[in-house]
């Protein structure tokens, strides 16, 4: 390096996925996260076994599941659907609460920023790894449920909510669509959780605040007198994935759900950006 060049030193910034990969590694190596994912993945197996054990004979039992139990993929959907009510939002809240507050709590945030990592880049990488984690967990839960279901119930035609049946291939596609839809709903929880994480240095505090937010949203959603408020709640459209099991699939509520998830995600990310880029880092 010549003297003339040296006096006008400019960093050569590479495009690199190293930070993103480092984040994924940190998340996946952490024992707490491994235990959490294992518990989430075990639940659909239990649900599938219970469904199998209590399988009604022909003509008995609730009409929803009875006709569906020839196709094991229903176990994947049942597992995801039950976890979407509480367990998955809790897991996402914990991981999202950790994004910024976790680094602030142990002091590594100041060393990331002085490396330097730009604050916008920090948020972008944290969010990208959070989204990756959400899709991975939904895939794992769906996979263990689906696999157990297929072993127990086989790969017959799936009965739709409209009373018709669809072949295994199409059923698989429907379940995949429903899983992606649920993951996108959870991304909205993650984005808001990441904003909450920029407000505190206590990752668990951020996670608890986010869980409260989700639970309150669900409580308000159950109060019929507040139906004018319901479309604005983060959890309102979560159960709309069930429309994908009609024949043909009904997309209007799912479309509204995707729009809702998109708006909540945009709100969370903008608020996180506004907060983190102007914050004094004193941790």
């Amino acid at each position: 390096m010549s003297v003339a060049e040296a006096s006008t030193w400019r960093p050569h910034r590479r495009f690199s996925t190293r930070f993103y990969r480092s984040e994924l590694r940190l998340m996946s190596l952490r024992r707490r996260n491994i235990a959490g994912v294992a518990a989430l993945a075990a639940l659909p197996i239990v649900i599938a076994i219970v469904m199998f054990a209590t399988k009604p004979g022909p003509g008995e039992g609730p009409p929803l599941f009875a006709g569906m139990l020839d196709n094991g993929l229903i176990a994947a959907l049942a597992g995801l659907g039950i976890e979407l009510a509480l367990f998955l939002p809790i897991a996402v809240s914990v991981i999202a609460g950790d994004t910024i507050a976790g680094e602030a709590n142990i002091g590594t945030l100041r060393y990331l920023l002085t490396t330097p990592v730009g604050r916008v880049r920090l948020l972008a990488v944290k969010f990208a790894s959070l989204v990756t984690w959400i899709f991975a967990v939904v895939a794992i839960v769906g996979f263990t449920g689906g696999l157990t279901g297929v072993i127990l119930f086989g790969t017959g035609d799936m009965a739709t909510l409209s009373g018709t049946t669809i072949p295994f291939g199409e059923a698989f596609l429907r379940v995949l669509e429903a899983a992606v839809y649920m993951a996108l709903c959870l991304v909205a929880v993650g984005a808001i959780g990441m904003f909450v994480s920029t407000l505190t240095e206590q990752p668990i505090g951020g996670a608890v605040a986010m869980m409260m937010f989700v639970i309150i949203s669900q409580i308000l959603g159950a109060i019929t007198q507040l139906d004018w408020l319901h479309p604005y709640l983060i959890s309102h459209y979560w159960t709309s994935y069930i429309d994908l099991l009609r024949d043909p699939a009904a997309w209007d509520q799912v479309g509204m759900g995707l729009l809702s998830a998109l708006l909540w995600t945009a709100l969370g990310l903008s608020a996180a950006w506004a907060r983190l880029t102007t914050k004094d880092i004193t941790s």
Binding site: P11, I106, G107, R110, Y111, T114, T115, P116
Partner: peptide, 18 residues
């Protein structure tokens, strides 16, 4: 800062690592 800080090594208020 993006131009200056890569050339600056810093230790601020004690060590902090994972």
């Amino acid at each position: 800062s993006a131009v200056a800080l890569p050339r600056v090594g810093a230790l601020v208020e004690g060590p902090a690592f994972h």
